[in-house]
Design a protein around this nucleic acid. Structure first.
Length: 260
DNA sequence: ATGGCTGGTAGAACCAGA
């Protein structure tokens, strides 16, 4: 079983490279974030044509939006609102073997890492805190994947020192993510297969003239699993070449394989 | 020089991303 996760930054605008990715990588399941489309306008036909008949959507107008695309039968489990503001940032399914797959798009958090000045930063922290409470009472083997918008380790950003005050790598966010991880003993599969301090960025800004030359990336996208599920993981990679595809997303897919 | 870009909605200039 091969499970991929990709922040696509508009699934309609980039449907061509999504199809290319599905053809080349052939995951069983693809978790998408930032689909930017209401459920009624989701480009289902393109997925069905490639054999992905199970399409679980949770979209909204303009922003955010998540979806799980699968060629194995999955059943929608829940769609949680960890921000309590009705934004479409999570959808979960049950896999045929009973494992849960939770696709999450954590809020970016705005520019200023101070909740008094910037309410979005507070909402991001609250979102992660609610995920932590949810994790603490999880009693099912679960995969938690998506765009967490937090790069936890020093080697998860191009410059630890220069990003200490930049939202996505501030100590307050990293500590919040640490509490989330501890609440369920989540295993960070990215780092199980690509141990620190090796770099494995999943996002590079659109603003760099040459993203590869400057390489000012961050590891914002993650695949976590319950310990019992993590023991079944056999491979994990970051699909860096996708950053060079025509009209790319600023994120690249991550792909994890499991023994079942 | 981490914001220099990008998409969506609109029908110009915002919002949002991070």
């Amino acid at each position: 079983m091969k499970i991929a996760s990709w922040n696509i930054n508009s699934v309609r605008f980039r449907i061509g490279i999504v199809e290319q990715f599905l053809r080349e990588e052939s995951p069983d399941i693809l978790c998408l974030q930032e689909t930017k489309v209401i459920d009624g306008d989701f480009p289902e036909d393109a997925f069905r044509a490639l054999g992905y008949d199970h399409i679980i959507k949770h979209g909204q107008r303009m922003h955010h939006g998540v979806a799980i695309i699968s060629r194995v039968p999955v059943v929608e489990d829940d769609r949680l609102d960890w921000q309590a503001n009705q934004e479409a940032r999570h959808v979960g399914v049950k896999l045929p073997n009973g494992v849960r797959l939770e696709n999450v798009y954590v809020p970016a958090g705005g520019d200023v890492p101070n909740r008094e000045v910037n309410p979005k930063f507070g909402q991001k922290l609250d979102f992660v805190e609610r995920m932590t409470q949810w994790s603490a009472q999880l009693d099912t083997p679960t995969i938690l994947s998506g765009d967490f918008n937090i790069a936890p380790l020093e080697c998860d950003v191009w410059s630890h020192k220069q990003l200490l005050d930049v939202v996505s790598h501030t100590p307050i966010e990293v500590e919040a993510l640490g509490r989330l991880q501890a609440a369920h003993d989540w295993v960070d599969l990215g780092r199980r297969f690509i141990p620190a301090p090796e770099r494995c960025f999943t996002w590079w800004s659109y603003r760099a003239k040459d993203w590869r030359a400057s390489n000012r990336g961050r590891r914002l996208d993650h695949m976590w699993a319950s310990p019992s599920v993590a023991d079944q993981a056999t491979a994990h990679k970051v699909c860096e070449p996708c950053r060079d595809w025509l009209k790319p997303s600023d994120h690249v897919p991550i792909v994890t394989e499991f023994a079942w």
